[in-house]
Design a protein around this nucleic acid. Structure first.
Lengths: 342, 342
DNA sequence: AGGATTGATGTAAAGGTTTACATTCGGAGT
DNA sequence: ACTCCGAATGTAAACCTTTACATCAATCCT
C-alpha cells in the first residue's frame, strides 16, 4: 500500500481485471471498449490515482504534448497578454505551454534548441524577431514554428501579429489632423522588421499629406525607455525641433515623455507624443499616453491556432496573418503651439 | 542519409563500432571508458548530430531534468528578475526551467499538478503565497518544492525571500526620522503572509518611536494599483489625514501617488509616500519612488539552490531563508508640512 | 446449420535510454 | 605456469506506454 511509487497502467489493469491494452483504450478511445469495462477501468483509475506517465507516452508516440514559447525577455509588458491567448488556445487542443527564456543569450537559445531536438516539445512559438540560435540557426532542424508579435527576420517562419504599417498610419494621421507638420519618428531600426514597418507607415502618412520627410527628424532606437530619452537629448542639440514625437513603441514614448518633462516642457502643450502597443503603463503616465492598441490576446490565440494547423501537416494558406490595430486616444496629443524657444 | 529521423544512440554506436552501453558511458561517465574509445564516440556523435532523447532518458531514470516554476501572473514586475536567478542556478546544475502560468485559476493549477504527477518535472518553485491547486491541495502529492518571494500559506513548504519585517522597519524608520508622526499603512492583508509581515514591521517601528497606532490609518488592500487609489479616496472621506503613506508594495504606492496627484497635492511637499519591492517603474514615477529593494536575483538563486538540496534528499536545516532588503532613497519622501486643509 | 462478420479484449513488440551483471583480456603475484 | 584481479566493453533487462495483430465469442446471413 505504499504510495511512494506512482501507479502505473499495470496497477490499474490488475485492479480492473483487464489487460493494460484495454486500460489504454478506455482512456484514449473509450468508444472501443464496452460500457461496463469502461466503468471498471474508470473506478480503478480513481482508486489508484493513476495519471499517465507523460514521458513514456511521448516516447512511444514520438511527440510530446507541449508547445515551447521562446521569449528573449519575459518582462516585456506585451508578453503576458499574448501568452494568455497562446495558453488558452493550446489548452483547447489538449496541449500545454512551456516558456523558454533566452535573455537574448544565444547560448541560452541553443539549450532550447536541444530541448526541441530531444522531442520534448511538438512545436514552437517565437516571441522575437530573430531565431535565437546564434550561428547554428541555418542548420537547425526545427519543429513546426510560428512567429508572433514581431516578424521573424531569418528563417521563413509564418507570422501572426498586428498590421504595423496600418497602426502607424493611424497615429501619424491623428497627429497631422491635429495640425502638426514637423513630426519626428523615434526608434528607427534596421533589424526589427516590425519597427521598420511602423516607420514605413509613418512615411506613407507624411507623404500622403504632402509633408516634407526630414531625415534629421528620424531618430534610431532600440525600443527601450533609454533610447527614447537619448533621442530627445540628441534632437535638442539641433536647431529645428519637431512639434510632435511619433514613437515606435510605448517604451520609447515613455522615455521621450520623461526627457521632455525633465526639461520642463508640458505635454501636450509644448509637444505631442504617441506610442505603439498600449502597454499597461501607458495609462499611468502623466499625461496618459495616446497610442495604438495591439489585440494581444487575439494574436496569441491565432498564432497558436496556426501552429496546430502546421502540426497537422496542413500547409498554411498565408504566411502572415495581420490583425487590425486600434487607435487609443488619451491625453498626450494636442494641437501644436508655435515652436518653443530653446 | 535521410535526416528525417533524429539519430539515436544506436546510430552512434554503429558508427563508432562500440556497443550502445559504451556510448552511454562515454557521455555520462567518461572516466570509465578508454581514451581512444571516448574519442571515437565523440566523433561519431559529432557526425550524426546525436542528442539524447530526453523522454527516453527521463523514463529510464524516473525523473526529469526540468524544474517547474509556477506563477499566478507572469506580468508581475518582480517576476522576471527572480526568474533570472532561478534559471542561472538551475542551469549550473544541468537543469532547465519551465514556467507554468496559472492566471490565478485553480483549474489551471491542477493541470500543472498533473504535469508534475506525470514526472515531467523533478521539482517545483512556487512564486505565489498559496498552493494553486484548489481543494485538492491537501491531498496532492508534491515533488520537492520551494516557495519564493512570498511565504506559502498552506502546505509547510520551505521559503526563500526578503526579510519583510526588517524592510518595512527601514521604511517606517525613515519616515519617522523625517519627522512624520501620523503615518498610514496601505495594503493590509490577512491572506498574504508577506504583506502581513510588512505590516508587523510598520507596527514595530511605530511602537518603538512611541507613536500612536491609529487603526483608522490602516487600510486594507490587495497590492494592486487600484487598491492604492481606493485607499486614498477612503482616507480622504475622514477628518484625520496622515502626513505619510507607507505602502505595502510599489504597485500600491503608485496607486496612492496617482490618486494624490489627481487631487492636486504635491509629493513629497504635501504627503510622503514609500513603497516596497523597487520595481522598475519606481524610477519612472514623478517624483521617483523611495522604496525597499528586493534582492531579486539573489532570491531566485538561493531558492533554486535550496531546491537542489531537497532533491538530494538533504533535509534543509532551516525552513525559511530571509535575505536583507535595502532602503532605496529617492524623491517621494520629505519632511511633513502642517496638515493641509481639505 | 454453417460460414462470415462484428465487437471486445488480450498479446507482444516497439520506442531510446541507463545500468547491473556477464564477459573478455592482459598483466601481476606467487 | 597458474590463479586472480582490474579495466574495458558487451548483453540484456527495465522504465511505461500505445497499437498492430491475434484471438475469441456472439450475431447475422443465406
Amino acid at each position: 500500500m505504499s504510495k511512494s511509487t506512482p501507479a502505473t497502467i499495470e496497477d490499474v489493469a490488475r485492479l480492473a481485471e483487464v489487460s493494460i491494452a484495454t486500460v489504454s483504450r478506455a482512456i484514449h478511445t473509450p468508444e472501443k471498449v464496452a460500457k461496463e469495462t469502461r466503468l471498471k477501468v474508470t473506478q480503478a483509475i480513481a482508486i489508484t490515482g493513476y495519471t499517465t506517465n507523460a514521458m513514456a507516452r511521448s516516447l512511444r508516440l514520438g511527440r510530446s504534448n507541449m508547445i515551447l514559447v521562446v521569449a528573449p525577455d519575459i518582462g516585456d509588458p506585451n508578453f503576458s497578454n499574448i501568452l494568455i491567448g497562446l495558453e488558452n488556445e493550446a489548452r483547447a487542443h489538449g496541449y500545454g505551454v512551456l516558456i523558454g527564456h533566452t535573455q537574448n543569450d544565444p547560448q541560452r537559445g541553443l539549450e532550447y534548441l536541444k530541448f526541441l531536438n530531444s522531442n520534448q516539445a511538438a512545436g514552437m512559438i517565437l516571441f522575437t524577431g530573430i531565431l535565437p540560435f546564434g550561428h547554428q540557426t541555418m542548420t537547425a532542424r526545427l519543429p513546426p514554428s510560428v512567429g508572433v508579435f514581431e516578424p521573424v527576420y531569418n528563417g521563413g517562419i509564418p507570422y501572426v501579429g498586428v498590421d504595423d504599417a496600418a497602426g502607424a498610419r493611424k497615429a501619424i494621421d491623428l497627429l497631422i489632423t491635429e495640425g502638426h507638420r514637423r513630426i519626428a519618428f523615434i526608434g528607427e531600426s534596421r533589424t526589427r522588421l516590425g519597427h521598420a514597418r511602423r516607420k514605413a507607415g509613418y512615411e506613407d502618412g507624411m507623404r500622403a499629406a504632402r509633408l516634407e520627410l526630414d531625415p534629421g527628424l528620424i531618430m534610431p532606437g532600440d525600443g527601450t525607455i533609454e533610447s527614447g530619452r537619448l533621442a530627445v537629448e540628441q534632437l535638442f542639440m539641433r536647431d529645428t525641433l519637431p512639434t510632435a514625437f511619433m514613437c515606435v513603441n510605448d517604451q520609447t514614448a515613455i522615455g521621450v515623455m520623461l526627457a521632455l518633462t525633465a526639461r520642463g516642457y508640458s505635454i501636450p502643450g509644448d509637444f505631442s507624443v504617441t506610442g505603439f502597443d498600449d502597454v499597461p503603463q501607458a495609462t499611468f503616465m502623466n499625461p496618459t499616453l495616446t497610442t495604438i492598441r495591439q489585440p494581444r490576446t487575439a494574436i496569441g490565440k491565432q498564432a497558436m491556432a496556426l501552429l496546430f494547423k502546421l502540426l497537422q501537416d496542413e500547409k498554411p494558406e498565408e504566411t502572415e496573418i495581420l490583425l487590425a490595430p486600434d487607435l487609443v486616444v488619451r491625453n498626450s496629443v494636442g494641437a501644436p503651439r508655435s515652436l518653443p524657444k530653446r
